[in-house]
């Protein structure tokens, strides 16, 4: 009964398991996302799409460090006008929910893109208000509670599908932003996007990334994202999706115990696209051994005093 034990529901999104492909990873084409779904993901999230096409930055767009990966892709995307066709195509191919990640340079832009994505068939929208490496969008929106609130309200007014807000960890107190997003209408929170980071090459004495700064992901940030989930779970009632450094079932269990209802996996796909399968298998075994009937039962248990 593996299916039943892992089945969950996040703000109306029915998932066969709680693992989700994180935004930015392999998420342009329907075929690519379908492969991830067939590798075990319970849902997939597209790369962030905006109102106009963007080519992103020149290489190097990633730096592999000893402790994690820093990326500054620069939000390359075809623009929503073209991308609606890929969303429609993806909906005919995918057998799991399709979540479209959206970014904009203003509340109106976020709302326009989100509306078009939802009309094209997106099962949910995730707002990228946390990309740390593109000016005037992403984290620059999500690091101001008033602007964040305005964006969430506008999008909420224009769409009916579940609205997920992906938070930035690059703030003094993430709880303030979690509350602001929920009060403005967020149905789900994703915690967290990458941590703003830098890599310098000692030999040539220059920053390695073309954009100089980028976002750190991978195992290095897991303790930080886990703490963010734990803190947010204390103050909001909406479901939380954990994201940041999850690469095996034990990581996933820790996020669930901290208060996440599901987890997103991104960087770990580099080592194995079947990471979703292995997380699910381990999680199922864990739940059976601990005598839980369903994954929902362990959400937030670490908060017990």
């Amino acid at each position: 009964m593996e299916q039943n034990r892992l089945t969950t529901n996040i703000a109306g999104l029915k998932l066969t398991n709680p693992t989700i492909l994180a935004s930015g990873i392999m998420g342009y084409s329907a075929e690519s996302m379908d492969r991830v779904a067939k590798s075990g993901a319970g849902a997939v999230i597209t790369k962030s799409v905006g109102i106009k096409p963007r080519v992103g930055y020149a290489n190097p767009t990633i730096v592999q460090t000893e402790s994690g990966l820093i990326n500054a892709m620069g939000l390359p995307n075809p623009g929503i006008e073209k991308y609606v066709n890929e969303i429609k195509h993806a909906k005919t191919v995918l057998q799991v929910p399709l979540i479209v990640s959206v970014f904009g340079y203003s509340a109106d832009e976020y709302a326009i893109v989100a509306k078009k994505a939802a009309e094209a068939g997106a099962d949910a929208i995730e707002l990228n208000v946390s990309c740390p490496h593109v000016k005037q969008t992403g984290a620059e929106i999500g690091q101001n509670p008033n602007i964040l609130s305005e964006v969430v309200k506008k999008v909420k007014a224009e769409t009916t599908v579940p609205l997920i807000v992906k938070l930035s960890p690059n703030v003094a107190d993430i709880v303030v932003f979690a509350k602001a997003a929920v009060e403005a209408g967020a149905d789900v929170l994703t915690a967290v996007n990458t941590l703003k980071a830098l890599a310098i090459d000692a030999e040539t004495m220059i920053p390695i990334l073309n954009n100089i700064k980028g976002g750190l992901s991978g195992a290095a940030i897991k303790p930080v994202s886990l703490r963010c989930v734990y803190d947010i779970a204390d103050v909001v009632d909406v479901p939380i999706i954990g994201c940041g450094g999850i690469s095996n079932w034990r990581d996933a269990v820790e996020f669930l115990l901290a208060g996440a209802s599901a987890v997103q996996i991104g960087t770990a796909v580099a080592d194995d696209i079947k990471v979703f399968q292995s997380v699910n298998k381990g999680l199922e075994t864990y739940l059976r051994k601990k005598r839980y009937e369903n994954v929902k039962e362990i959400v937030g248990l670490a908060h017990r005093k």
Binding site: E31, R35, K47, N71, A270
Partner: peptide, 20 residues
């Protein structure tokens, strides 16, 4: 190719990543 390690999706053909 951008990342070269199968993450960014730039080199996808069909369901395959050319880099990975």
């Amino acid at each position: 190719m951008r990342c070269g390690i199968g993450l960014c999706g730039s080199c996808v053909i069909g369901k395959y990543r050319v880099c990975r």
